[in-house]
Amino acid sequence: MARTAIKDIVINQEWCKRCGICSTFCPKDVFETDAEGTVTVAHPEACIACELCERMCPDLAIHLEYEPPAEAPA
């Protein structure tokens, strides 16, 4: 099966409470955390779209955006 194309990983910093669940359990180390616990998307190209961060986030602050499905060849 083709890998799903991720367009963007959006973190809502206003809702995020910096618990560290996303960065700890991400299997591909997509996130980076600074000294204050703020999480940023450092390696979006490594994302395998497992959605673990989005589903585990207790603050509902992570959202994966997908590329629209490619049109079938004529």
Partner: peptide, 22 residues
């Protein structure tokens, strides 16, 4: 969601938000 009430009241790392998510 009633987004006007977000972010929610639960503590950082509280599992209840994950249940809401699921």
């Amino acid at each position: 969601l009633r987004t006007r009430f977000m972010p929610h009241i639960w503590c950082p790392g509280c599992g209840h938000g994950t249940v809401l998510n699921g």
